[in-house]
Design a protein around this nucleic acid. Structure first.
Lengths: 225, 225
DNA sequence: CTATGTGAACAACTTCACAGCC
DNA sequence: GGCTGTGAAGTTGTTCACATAG
């Protein structure tokens, strides 16, 4: 999905790793506030809700900042994380589609505290608190630094994506229940609520019929970040 | 992530496949309405936005319903899909957390038409249109058939998950920015909006610095379902 | 003796490429 | 000849298990 130039020397971190880094940072912030100076991978992993081997592998991609037999220095590791994956200004985000979902995302408290700022909510229809589509260009400052969220109905998604790409955006998050295509240099990620529910519903139905009895549990299923 | 009993004979479909099946069905519905009787994998795949090999592999997991050299019979395939993965009643869904996101999901138009029905929106605080948490038991009919959506702040997520599991729910979709654990027989899936944005932001920053010039495009990046 | 760092195994999924059938 | 069905290869990500450093 990510296009990589052949000449690129320092490879990007795996996407899955990047997705977890922010949660490691949050845990480290809390530990630091609690005055804890050293932490071992198992404790950090538990707090972040991941396997300790995975945490060590993730951190090792940034370099060897741990001390064998001891663990990680909380303040130092936090600084490393900050400089290598967190070093960025507040990232501007525009949301297109002011329906229920678009408005919810625009008001989503989580974005503010995590380095993202919603600079505009756009729609084809005029309404209080939203911009019209033709105001996109004037609201977006640096288009290459801006993330576009598509929260429109499926029918409009591709057209909106095209508009955002034409304005220079390089990162799109698509909530519409359809695929959108974009040039290779544009990263498109998709969140499909319908698919998630379908998977749950199918699993439910499948296990209800052919589940023999109680399963031999080998530890609870874990989730999160 | 999915616990499977050793004695299970007919294995479940891969989750990724299940997530796409609904979109295949939608395309077939449209083709049928347009009076198209036969379709080849490449056309069906294009319409659904996936690779044709993938579509064939997905469909082959249900059985060999295509005709070599010809394609698939639209009506027949649609019926197969319906009976093998779509045969279910409207699935009840409860949403816990009546903040912006919970309300948006409760009003999400997409759920109704796709076999999901939101039967209740719950919150710790009383408000019009929402139930209180202690009404969960009375609203939920068949708990094993109900999907629970967690749209609370992170701090409340685990406690809510525990409550839902205690009531008998077996499928949870977690939107809170934290992991929740549950017994092995409960399927937990997570949607992490923050991680998605982090991944986009990281990629953006990484490519802005070391992108040499124009990349050799090998077709647009594709997304969706 | 402990806990990291990591090669290797494992797992889930996607894509290729071609045999096989119509 | 054309298109499906599928073994094999490729990709990405996770987990194991152990050599290695302290």
């Amino acid at each position: 999905m990510v296009q990589r130039s052949p000449s690129e020397l320092a490879p990007e971190l795996p996407q899955a790793t990047v997705g977890r880094m922010a949660s490691y940072r949050r845990v480290l912030d809390r530990l630091l506030a609690d005055g804890i100076t050293t932490v071992r991978s198992s404790a950090l992993a538990d707090a972040a809700g991941v396997n300790s081997a995975q945490l060590r592998k993730d951190l090792s991609l940034l370099g060897s900042y741990g001390v064998r037999g001891v663990g990680y220095d909380v303040a130092f590791l936090r600084e490393r994380l900050r400089s290598q994956i967190g070093e960025r200004d507040e990232v501007p985000v525009v949301i297109v589609g002011a329906g229920n979902l678009g408005r919810a995302l625009a008001n989503h408290a989580g974005f503010g505290g995590r380095g993202f700022q919603v600079i505009g909510l756009f729609d084809v229809r005029a309404d209080a608190g939203t911009y019209l589509m033709n105001q996109l260009a004037e609201v977006i400052g640096d288009p290459a630094a801006t993330i576009g969220i598509i929260a429109t109905p499926a029918a409009a998604a591709q057209q909106v994506a095209d508009q955002l790409v034409a304005l220079g955006l390089r990162s799109l998050l698509n909530f519409a229940p359809t695929r959108v295509s974009a040039p290779a240099e544009v990263m498109v990620r998709r969140v499909d609520l319908g698919s998630e529910l379908e998977i749950l519903a199918y699993h439910q139905q499948a296990t209800q019929t052919d589940e023999p009895a109680l399963l031999p549990s080998r530890g609870g299923s874990k989730e999160g970040g």
